[in-house]
């Protein structure tokens, strides 16, 4: 089993059952998983901000409005069917309650949802908001997606795909 890390602004895509896609320690960032469980292809993007002007060396999925369509292209290139994709969102917390109204986490979630809606990809599970950081994992072996709080157990967000059962 190998873990593919999606660090800030980065993404991981796989069609290999041995892989686990991981976004560690998401705070205000959003971990967006796009999963085609029948084709066994999935991608995970670590989105940092809702929108903005990308800088020259910026990683591809830093901004939601660019990153979501980009991740879609990558999973389709690996053999996913757009019609079958399901989206799971994790993160978007407000780690520090601030008075200046700069709720990066909430804006990130709204921007990712808006981009998914434009692409007509359904959001099937979420673990977002609140004040706590999370880690997201996408298991290629069976398409399950989990979320974990600091010091807590892994919680199942998207159930394993039953291999051989027609969808």
């Amino acid at each position: 089993m190998s873990e593919l890390m999606a660090r800030m602004g980065e993404y991981a895509v796989s069609a290999d059952r041995d892989d686990v896609l991981v976004g560690l320690g998401l705070g205000s960032c959003i971990g967006l998983a796009l999963v085609d469980r029948r084709s066994n292809v999935a991608g995970l993007a670590h989105v940092v901000l809702s929108k903005g002007e990308p800088a020259a060396g910026d990683p591809p999925v830093k901004y939601a409005h660019i990153g979501v369509p980009y991740l879609l292209e990558q999973v389709v290139a690996q053999g996913a069917r757009k019609m079958r994709l399901e989206a799971v969102l994790v993160g978007g917390a407000s780690m520090f309650v601030s008075k200046n109204g700069l709720e990066v986490g909430q804006r990130n979630e709204a921007a990712v949802r808006e981009a998914l809606e434009k692409l007509r990809i359904p959001v099937v599970a979420v673990d977002t908001g609140g004040k706590r950081g999370r880690t997201v994992r996408v298991y290629m072996a069976d398409g399950r997606v989990t979320s974990r709080l600091a010091g807590g157990p892994e919680e199942l967000l998207l159930k394993p795909y039953a291999v051989g059962v027609a969808a």
């Binding site: 800030m8 998401l26 205000s28 990683p59 950081g133």
Partner: peptide, 18 residues
């Protein structure tokens, strides 16, 4: 988690720079 705390602070100042 250290990542969640640090990334949240980094994100606030991440616009317009790589």
């Amino acid at each position: 988690m250290l990542g969640a705390i640090v990334a949240t602070c980094l994100a606030e100042h991440a616009d317009g720079t790589d």
